[in-house]
Simulated assay, not measured.
Amino acid sequence: MSRKGQSITLSVSERDKTQLEAIALQFGMKWGDDPNISKLIKSIAQHELIVSKNNDWQDFRIRALHRCISALTDIGQNEQAEIIANLLLERSELSVPLRKEIEGFLNNSRPSWRLQIDHYILRQQPFQLAYQDALEQVLNFTVRYAKIRPHEKRLYLDCWCKETEGNLDIPELKHNWCFRLDGINEASVTEITQKWLNDLDQIDVEMHLLNKLAFAYQPKPEDKIVEWIPDQPRVKRVIRRISNTFWFIREIMQYSSDCIVVSPENVRSLIKAKLITLCDNYAIVVGDNNNQISP
Score class of each variant (00 low, 15 high):
residue 69 I to N: 03
residue 276 I to V: 15
residue 212 K to H: 08
residue 47 H to N: 13
residue 47 H to F: 14
residue 41 I to W: 01
residue 121 I to H: 00
residue 140 N to R: 10
residue 277 T to V: 10
residue 276 I to F: 10
residue 67 R to V: 13
residue 146 A to K: 01
residue 103 E to F: 03
residue 226 V to F: 03
residue 220 K to Y: 04
residue 29 M to N: 07
residue 72 L to E: 10
residue 79 E to H: 14
residue 209 L to F: 08
residue 275 L to Y: 09
residue 27 F to T: 06
residue 78 N to I: 11
residue 283 A to D: 13
residue 211 N to K: 10
residue 232 Q to I: 13
residue 106 L to P: 00
residue 141 F to M: 06
residue 264 P to S: 01
residue 115 L to H: 00
residue 44 I to K: 11
residue 27 F to W: 09
residue 180 R to M: 07
residue 200 L to N: 02
residue 187 A to T: 04
residue 289 N to Y: 15
residue 230 P to G: 04
residue 147 K to Q: 13
residue 284 I to W: 11
residue 247 W to A: 07
residue 136 E to Q: 15
residue 160 W to H: 09
residue 283 A to M: 13
residue 160 W to Q: 06
residue 228 W to V: 14
residue 224 K to Y: 07
residue 239 I to D: 06
residue 88 L to Y: 03
residue 97 P to M: 03
residue 119 H to Y: 08
residue 241 R to V: 04
residue 206 E to K: 11
residue 162 K to T: 04
residue 257 S to T: 09
residue 97 P to G: 05
residue 94 L to S: 05
residue 128 Q to L: 08
residue 285 V to T: 13
residue 273 A to E: 10
residue 57 W to R: 07
residue 96 V to Y: 09
residue 281 N to L: 12
residue 243 S to Q: 10
residue 254 Q to F: 15
residue 264 P to H: 01
residue 102 I to E: 02
residue 168 L to N: 07
residue 97 P to H: 05
residue 290 N to E: 14
residue 273 A to Q: 09
residue 65 L to P: 00
